[in-house]
Amino acid sequence: MLQDGLIMYEDSFEKINLILDELMKNSKSECVFLVDKSGQLITMRGNMEQFDSTAFASLSAGNFAATSELAKLIGETEFSVLFHEGVKDSIHISIVAGSIIMVVVFRVVKTSLGLVRLEVKKSVEHLAHVLKEMVERSKRDGQIKKLDESFTQAIENEIDSLFKD
């Protein structure tokens, strides 16, 4: 629902993408994603052609949520970082601004976990700042910003024409 819904504006989007591009370059990674806790992809940067980004986002959020529950069971509040090691590619998952999941995919031969971790740490601070701004602005605008009627009508027509046997 919109009171907790997120609204992303062009300027914050650009700022976020710049930070992610920088992170990718400095950590020599393949791609970076931001996903909200409900599993929706906020943005992604880098070369994603080889996999399905929507499924990836949903599974990352599920993975993070499940692991956080594991953490709670042993008395931790949340594992702040997850790392999945592959033969060719590895995945580093962390949380930004308390509520956004950041996933970095990197190639084992091109870079190292240490470097990725270091660069992630650096960019998390910048990102947290932009995201906080965005969340606050979303909250303010959530009350006023409505989709207009002709738009809602057009989507309903689309629903009718698409969601059928």
Partner: peptide, 15 residues
Amino acid sequence: MSLINYASREINCKI
């Protein structure tokens, strides 16, 4: 949590 992205012009909803 719906996500309205004015930059990539997307609205995402979860059912």
